[in-house]
Design a protein around this nucleic acid. Structure first.
Lengths: 241, 241
DNA sequence: GGGACATTTCGGCGTCCACCGAAGCGTCCC
DNA sequence: GGGACGCTTCGGTGGACGCCGAAATGTCCC
């Protein structure tokens, strides 16, 4: 009869390659930088991690070989980014186990506040903005269940009016909605295919813009007005004040 | 005003400790063995990974220090198990990225078939049994959405009749339902608090029993009858035939 | 109490690998 | 074409760590 599942493949997983990829400070820093879904050139990553260009290059090769990161060559730059949504999800749940990284050498204090206000978690909105939106939508009956965030009929209508590609999200192969727990705040915000669609819409509509060459998002005036009028969310100008 | 989220804590995560814990074959083997939710003594783990007792002891210290594993001392044995449900969840999503482990030295071919039939994935049913039950319950309208598996009213009634602690699962702090993707088959099966409650019920009712000192579950005659009569699931006796 | 057993601690060995600077390769731009 | 620039490859070095056997610790049981 032979084994029923083709080839005598083990059901076990070999965690060693992925584990080794995560096991050094420089590579951990790289992944943290890429977790907002951006692509960054090797040099920038090297600088951020405080290693030489050659060392960074070796690290990036390890990450690519492990399947965590992909490389896109453009001109004389090579842009690295996370290899996909599964990688972001895996890192997200691993982050629940990991400690907060010690504040590294380069200046970060100012940025931390921007991060807290609004940021991308790979493909969906996070930070205070992501949490506030999710809370408001649960409250409005658009999303059901604090831990599942299932899309209701009312939510489908409302988000469609907002210009979110709801239908694309529902028919996507990945889970429509998913709750992503913020590492520090531990409060759920909308992820999954719908979370991605919402993020895309917010960017396309100009309600948020990626903060120049850095991490975090700026919520534009139009964006602030929208969330205030539609859902009564008052984004404190903590960053600006 | 000082930083709004207390202490100038970095929003980044330090993946190095967890990564290092995963980065050696012996430790990867240990984690695979413990992923079914069992507790195992150090000696058994050493034997399974093919390392000396002293080496295994060192590895286990690393895993405990990384917070992935906990130790319970009983008599002259020390039983190790996964540190919690978050660890199981993280490993589960990491497994999506990792390769299948090469079949290691010790005999495993026979066991693979038991594993495929029914097994525990930390706290919920998996294997063919887990997948079949989930499919049947989606079909019966007990669970909604192939990727979310949200509990319906009918499902709550049905599972409560079955003796599952539905109310405990709904009020639990973790997500009530969650879809867990099997690594090899890539088919969703019920996880989350409700998945755990179902697993507990199946064990308590004697519908499945843990296979003696090994991995995988035996579905008892009562269990086979239940799933056949209630949901038309015919568990092929692949293991016995 | 003594002997078997499970496990950890210790000391030592060999290998792996993170790191750097220098050199090589490709791209851009004057 | 030549020089600046971004990145990778190469060679070499030092430290970290996976491995074992031997000895130490602790538990069980006669």
């Amino acid at each position: 009869m032979s084994p029923p599942y083709g080839r005598s493949m083990s059901r076990d997983r070999d965690f060693t390659a992925v584990g080794r990829a995560l096991s050094t400070p420089a590579r951990s820093t790289f992944l943290n930088l890429l977790m907002d879904g951006t692509s960054r050139p090797a040099g920038e990553l090297a600088l951020a991690a405080g290693v030489s260009a050659s060392t960074a290059s070796e690290h990036l090769t390890v990450l690519v070989d492990a399947g965590l990161v992909t490389c896109r060559a453009t001109g004389r730059h090579r842009y690295y980014s996370l290899a996909g949504q599964e990688v972001a999800t895996a890192l997200e749940s691993l982050g629940m186990l990991a400690d907060a990284a010690p504040v590294s050498g380069y200046r970060r204090s100012r940025r931390a506040e921007y991060l807290a206000a609004a940021r991308f978690c790979y493909d969906h909105l996070a930070g205070r903005l992501g949490i506030s939106l999710t809370d408001a939508w649960v409250h409005a009956g658009w999303l059901a269940g604090r831990d599942e965030l299932a899309l209701t009929d009312a939510g489908a209508v409302g988000l469609r009016e907002l210009g979110v590609d709801v239908d694309g999200a529902v028919t996507a192969r990945r889970a429509t909605t998913r709750a992503c727990l913020d590492w520090t705040e531990r409060r759920p915000h909308l992820a999954g295919a719908l979370g991605s669609a919402v993020g895309t819409r917010f960017l396309d509509a100009g309600w948020v813009t990626r903060h120049r060459s850095g991490r975090g998002l700026d919520v534009t005036e139009a964006g602030r007005e929208l969330v205030r009028e539609a859902w009564g969310i008052n984004l404190a100008d903590a960053g600006a004040a």
